[in-house]
Amino acid sequence: MTAPRAWWTRVPDPVIDAMVVAVAVGDVLLSLADAGPVAQSMAALACAALVVRRRFPLPVFLLTLPASLMLDIVFAPFAALFTLAERSRNRRLLVVCAVLFALASAAPWPLYDLTAHDRTWTLVYFFYTLATAAAPVLLGQLVQARRDLARRLVEIEEAREHERLLHSQAVLARERAQLAREMHDVVSHQVSLIAVQAGALQVAATDPDFKEGARTIRSLSVGTLDELRHMVTLLRASGGRATELTPQPTLADLHKLVTTSGIDAELTGELPPEVSTTAQRAVYRTVQEALTNVRKHAPGASATVRLWRADDGAAFGVTVTNTPPTRPSLPLPGSHQGLIGLRERAELLGGTFESGPTADGGYEVALRIPPRTD
């Protein structure tokens, strides 16, 4: 939702131009008492030129200088100088224009009528006028900076909206890919077992009704597998690559993960064989995230991955501890969501996840899972 525009920004440009010309004409009329035809012509030209000051700011400003030299006017050159400062990014040009205006305003007319006393007063009036000319220049630059800032804020908001859209699409794709993996690795596997068992029963059965029931179960299982494969393909196509439906990692992959982590890491201990597939994935992901953090944030540190189970069988889990880093770490980008995701994964399993620094300056993460988690 954008903020309401100020009332003066809703005034049409032709109306503003007409008001500027009207004020400039009024300023000129106050100085035409003893003006000659040339001065009057220059004043009329300066006022008329203000109509096109938005398109030709520099020529219009230069056209106001003769009138400023011949008459005691300020509004027309100020309006032209403000428009030039609002639209130009050349600050040297703005300084030169301000000096030209000060010279035109301070110089006497005619130029040859200049005594020693007048020269001193002209110099004083020049610096006074130069300081006055800084006002439209600074105001014009301020309006330009405000306009640039507003444009930049719009661009940032559009970029943030685009980033939010991409993030939501990435989350949706990740969830679909995760669902596809779960269907492929768990549901498809179990339905395959049903089909195999039903086929075995169909072969071994002697009763016709029993054989027909086994055949029906096997036929439905095969059809279900086909539907699952089709759904998995659709999910993968909409959530990422439609290939590489590889099984999720298990405890059997931990040794390879530790040895190929790129750091000095040691794997000790073991877990009970009845650990569920879901719990095995949680243990694997915990070790993977912990070793990744060691590699990113603790260069030169060594790590110990300890698999454990309680003596009374009430829980099992993994603890990853690393020593303090031996050299400074480089600032690497990260989502800062890894540990949060591990904690959420542990909570879904009914377990706990803890992380924090150790007394010797290292870091430790610990996952604890109750038994019979599936």
Rank of each mutant, 00 (worst) to 15 (best):
H167F: 10
L220I: 00
T260M: 07
E175S: 14
V305Q: 09
D17I: 03
R10W: 00
V38E: 12
G240E: 06
A18H: 11
G26W: 04
R119L: 15
N90V: 01
T286H: 12
E227M: 12
S68I: 01
L93Q: 15
A195C: 07
V318H: 09
E161R: 09
V203S: 10
H167T: 14
R5K: 12
P324S: 05
F127A: 05
V51P: 02
D118F: 03
L307A: 06
I194A: 09
T122G: 04
P247G: 10
G362I: 04
E274R: 02
R53F: 03
C47I: 05
P328R: 13
G362V: 04
K211R: 15
E182T: 04
L166P: 07
S335M: 11
T115D: 14
S329T: 06
A282Y: 05
S168D: 13
H230T: 12
A180H: 03
V320N: 10
R295G: 00
R92H: 06
V186T: 09
L165Y: 11
V275H: 03
E163D: 09
A252M: 08
C97F: 04
K256M: 01
R147I: 01
V25C: 04
D264G: 05
G313S: 02
L201I: 08
R151G: 06
A366R: 14
V171K: 15
V96C: 07
A150R: 14
A214R: 01
A310Y: 08
A282V: 11
E163I: 05
E270L: 06
P136T: 06
A303Q: 04
M1V: 13
L45W: 09
T122A: 14
F316C: 01
R89N: 02
P14R: 07
A359W: 00
L138P: 00
Q197Y: 05
G317S: 06
R218I: 00
G351S: 02
T326V: 02
A98V: 10
I263Y: 02
E354N: 14
A310E: 15
T246D: 13
L50N: 04
D253S: 15
T115E: 10
D360L: 04
V283K: 13
A33C: 01
L330T: 11
S88K: 08
T122P: 08
G223R: 12
I194C: 02
V294R: 03
F82M: 08
P333M: 07
T206L: 12
F61M: 04
P371H: 03
V305Y: 02
P249G: 08
L69R: 13
D311G: 04
S68Q: 11
L111N: 01
S355M: 09
E163M: 10
L94C: 07
L254I: 07
P273A: 07
T260R: 15
F316Q: 08
D17W: 00
